[in-house]
Amino acid sequence: MTLFWKWTIAVFLVLLLAAFLVLCKMAGSPKDAYGMVRYAFPHMHRGTLKVGDDAPDARLVALDGSDHFHIRERTGGRPLVIIFGSYT
């Protein structure tokens, strides 16, 4: 193996280790870093919406589990603040 490839591999491994440490710091622990990469990153999307765009519509289910309504049914009269989130 040439010196070039030894250095290339060494730099790659150092960068990989640095990325892992940054993830651990962000997530809290190595286990959480794994969780972030395995379960969070695939679902995190920046999206393309921007201020001034028409608000997309989507059908939502009411708390009774059977009734439905659309987000756009709630817009028009006054500003609508939408809070997206989950329990956990």
Binding site: A40, H43, M44, H45, R46, G47, T48, L49, K50, V51, G52, D53, D54, A55, P56, D57, A58, R59, L60, I71, R72, T75, G76, G77, R78, P79, L80, V81, I82, I83, F84, G85, S86
Partner: peptide
């Protein structure tokens, strides 16, 4: 569908104005 339309996950806030725009 809503999550995909708004890139909402895991949590995100929006304000839609009276004209239906973001």
């Amino acid at each position: 569908a809503a999550n995909d339309a708004y890139a909402a996950w895991p949590e995100r806030l929006y304000v839609i104005d009276e004209s239906g725009r973001i």
